[in-house]
Design a protein around this nucleic acid. Sequence first.
DNA 1: TTAATTTACGCAATCGATTCCGTTAACTAT
DNA 2: ATAGTTAACGGAATCGATTGCGTAAATTAA
Lengths: 349, 349
Amino acid sequence: MKIKKEVTIYDLAKELNYSPSTISRALNNHKSISKKTIKLIKEAAEEMGYRPNNLAAGLRNNKSNTIGVLISRINRPFMASLISGIEETARKAGYNVLISQSNDKYENEISNCNTLYDSRITGLIVSLSMETVEMEHFQKFVDKGIPIVFVDRVPDNFNSYKVVIDNYTAGYSATKHLIEQGCKRIAHFAGAQHRNVYRERKKGYLDALREHGLPIEDNLMVNFKTLSFEEGNKATKKLLKSANPPDGIFSANDTAAVSAIMCAKKMGVEVPEQLAVIGFNDDPIASIVQPSLSTVSHPASKMGAISAKRILDHSINTYDTGVSEVTVLGTEIIARDSSLKRTKVLESE
Amino acid sequence: MKIKKEVTIYDLAKELNYSPSTISRALNNHKSISKKTIKLIKEAAEEMGYRPNNLAAGLRNNKSNTIGVLISRINRPFMASLISGIEETARKAGYNVLISQSNDKYENEISNCNTLYDSRITGLIVSLSMETVEMEHFQKFVDKGIPIVFVDRVPDNFNSYKVVIDNYTAGYSATKHLIEQGCKRIAHFAGAQHRNVYRERKKGYLDALREHGLPIEDNLMVNFKTLSFEEGNKATKKLLKSANPPDGIFSANDTAAVSAIMCAKKMGVEVPEQLAVIGFNDDPIASIVQPSLSTVSHPASKMGAISAKRILDHSINTYDTGVSEVTVLGTEIIARDSSLKRTKVLESE
DNA sequence: TTAATTTACGCAATCGATTCCGTTAACTAT
DNA sequence: ATAGTTAACGGAATCGATTGCGTAAATTAA
């Protein structure tokens, strides 16, 4: 098949009897080009079907107007919303978004990091993989003055921009919510403890118990690997069959929380009467399960938007190695049926 | 802060006393460079921290090893899985993935199209926006020999690669499934009829009714705009309050189907006994709602993988304008509790 | 009226990798 | 031993946009 030739600024220059410099400047609204000329050139460009070559511009400027995103998995409600927020903000500013998923593997994270670097991204937004501990693969970005924004699953030992929620307070509030509902023995489904988000949530849980004089028992705290449905199911069954079962569960995510509800129901344990449950994330399934799941809501899309803005606003001058600029967003306890022990809630509508 | 200088093939050339040509060829395993030299150069490159500049290579080759993705919204389970499949396949082949969402607006689709074009993507994967009718904004890709793969929401009037599921058969089977369960008056929640996916599902529904001698009634077919939860709620209420309510609903997506289940329960209509429901997509909520939602499952991630492969395998020589290469994938009826009228299903496990 | 600006543009180098042509030296065949 | 190959590499143009520097003409200031 026949391939149409690309129209370049040189073609425009020849056609309009201007130099390529003038064409370039006109298209970028440079002030030293007269209004008339700009109008003329832009109209001709439009008519001739000119389209800028981002690769050429990027090469010259050594950046690509592209934001790189490095996350664990796309098909999780939180991540999808995060990306959605990033994409919207980036595109409004004329930026592209490159995505890559690590599938929670350290190795993939490194390799994706390199690929993104090779593409001369303007900035990088990262949510760490489950496995990641070492952080050297991010150093080259710092060395080059390329901003990195860590979101949600952030490192402890690396100075950079960070956008997080207040996991400690969220964990504290969720637990306190259960206590206020009358729970006396509250279990916790904890995520991998080397990831600060899960560690903070657990801290909040522990402090809430302490401050309210409730027992802290090792066998009420289950350390999950992935907080999957299956893991949740197994853990719930074990807890409920134990000699002294809990009357409340604070799960570090909704998936495991939902599995707890379903498992309890199957075992004839009433939720919330005998077992109150609160999750984390406010995934779509939370409002669908019955009884509907109380949870902690994230402003996921907003976190994405803020992260993107961090990159866009980043000026090389204000970037000082050794300083972390952390944005902490608030969360909200969504009290649904799965935790409301005292009052029977009327169905809305 | 101090910015580290980039290491280029020229730096390597100077350091190793080779020409840039040789460095370039060595890094690409060109056959006319000796094994020894290749090894030497690669090791030096590694040690000096050389990283290729994709922009420069892209400019020279006039392509960027990047696949562009243009969809309506990322934060939908189907779309997220689709992208996930694309990303995995692309990355394995050393390609990057650029994403952009139209939010179902025609205008955004055009503008995103242009931005992706300007980035010299190797190929484009598209799921059309709800609004899109005209297709000229894709023409420039065809003119340039850049392959386009339409996925799921594909056009009727544009020749290109297409990856779809057999919506007609799926619609037919879903309806037939309800009929086999004893339904006599089956309603249909239909999506926007100018999008072929929804049109096909409806066709399948109609043919199934016809072939089984069931009544086709206009007031049993609801045309939705977005198949949202709210729309589904409203439609269900209206249907169930009508003089002659349906005993089955085939919804073109799960969201509306779930809303139907919840609405029915609230109104005291038993599911599936009085109202059987089957949805479409097999979203996570489908297995969480109670009774669990029967549905039609998509191989979303696989569709993404196939689409990406189409781009990767595309050779300019084999691309013939005027021909559509369509890949049709099968679907599967997932029979859960919401549609099983006859037999009471034992809870698994 | 003349010097000092300002306006509006052109020249040419530059970004980094690729690749079409060579070229030299070593090697093989007859 | 000489022509013919092959192996291994170098020179330099090229991709398209950007930009520091330079300049001629037009305008303003004194």
